[in-house]
């Protein structure tokens, strides 16, 4: 009995800590609630997945990660490759892929997966979601304490009950230190369109860069992301490095 009381008290303390502190960058993405990550354009779906992995899914606690994908998404954007996942510092062995034929089935699978005690996080890629479905998923997520990340297409605009919505687009990558002609660390622009956990942060634009070596995400200043064209091979220290190296 005493043990149980302790556990409850601990949970409360934990909860107060979490709500008391000012929410920092991912604003609860992958930690609690349902978060939507919408693509800015049709070709930005892979960028959404990348952002989800490096910002959100790494925060998932121990347990299985359920990746639900609707058939059309899987056909259009390919399946998640285990070797690619490993590149994001995620153990592909923890991921269970659920293949749903219809969006309805995918939503059902997400809700079902939230009810499982061994699941740390549920991610789903869907063409879109309506208010009722997102409300239902939010309630399930709150009740079971399993976070969910929904990857949505570019046409997802309307109001939903999700905790936050991100809008992600791919940005030209960082210049490679050793080869100016090669793509460097991937960069994304993530706009927090709305957020219930951090309403003050809504509308903020984050320019992010992912480092495969250290498996960390950096904020990049606007200035650095402005360049869409690679510097010419002759200029800059990149060329020098290449020659001496």
């Amino acid at each position: 009995m005493v043990m149980q009381m302790d556990a409850a008290a601990l949970k409360l303390v934990d909860f107060s800590c979490r709500t008391g502190a000012a929410p920092a960058f991912p604003y609860g993405l992958g930690e609690r609630g349902v978060h939507e990550i919408a693509a800015a354009g049709h070709g930005d779906m892979p960028a959404c997945a990348g952002f989800a992995f490096c910002a959100g899914l790494k925060r998932a606690g121990p347990g299985a990660i359920i990746w639900v994908s609707e058939h059309g998404r899987r056909r259009d954007f390919g399946f998640l490759a285990g070797h690619g996942l490993a590149g994001f510092g995620l153990d592909p062995g923890r991921v269970l892929f659920v293949h749903a034929r219809k969006p309805r089935e995918a939503l059902w699978a997400v809700e079902e997966a939230m009810g499982c005690g061994a699941v740390a996080l549920v991610a789903a890629e869907l063409p879109g979601i309506d208010f009722t479905a997102s409300r239902r998923l939010s309630l399930a997520s709150e009740a079971r304490g399993v976070p969910a990340v929904l990857l949505l297409g570019p046409r997802c605009e309307g109001a939903t009950a999700a905790a936050a919505r991100w809008r992600v687009r791919a940005r030209p990558s960082a210049p490679d230190r050793w080869d100016p002609r090669a793509p460097g660390h991937p960069r994304w622009q993530a706009v927090l369109e709305r957020s219930r956990t951090a309403p003050g942060a809504a509308g903020r634009t984050h320019d992010l860069e992912f480092d495969h070596e250290t498996l960390s995400v950096h904020m990049v200043s606007r200035l650095a992301t402005g360049a869409s064209r690679p510097p010419s091979p002759a200029a800059g220290d990149g060329g020098d490095w290449r020659e001496t190296g």
Binding site: A64, I66, L80, A81, V98, A100, R101, E105, A109, A113
Partner: peptide, 23 residues
């Protein structure tokens, strides 16, 4: 727990709906 979940999903979405990637 994980396989119980997989069973439930496969019972509804069909055989082979839950997959794992094997290197």
């Amino acid at each position: 727990e994980v396989s119980a979940l997989a069973d439930r999903i496969m019972a509804r979405l069909g055989e082979g709906a839950v997959q794992v990637a094997v290197p």
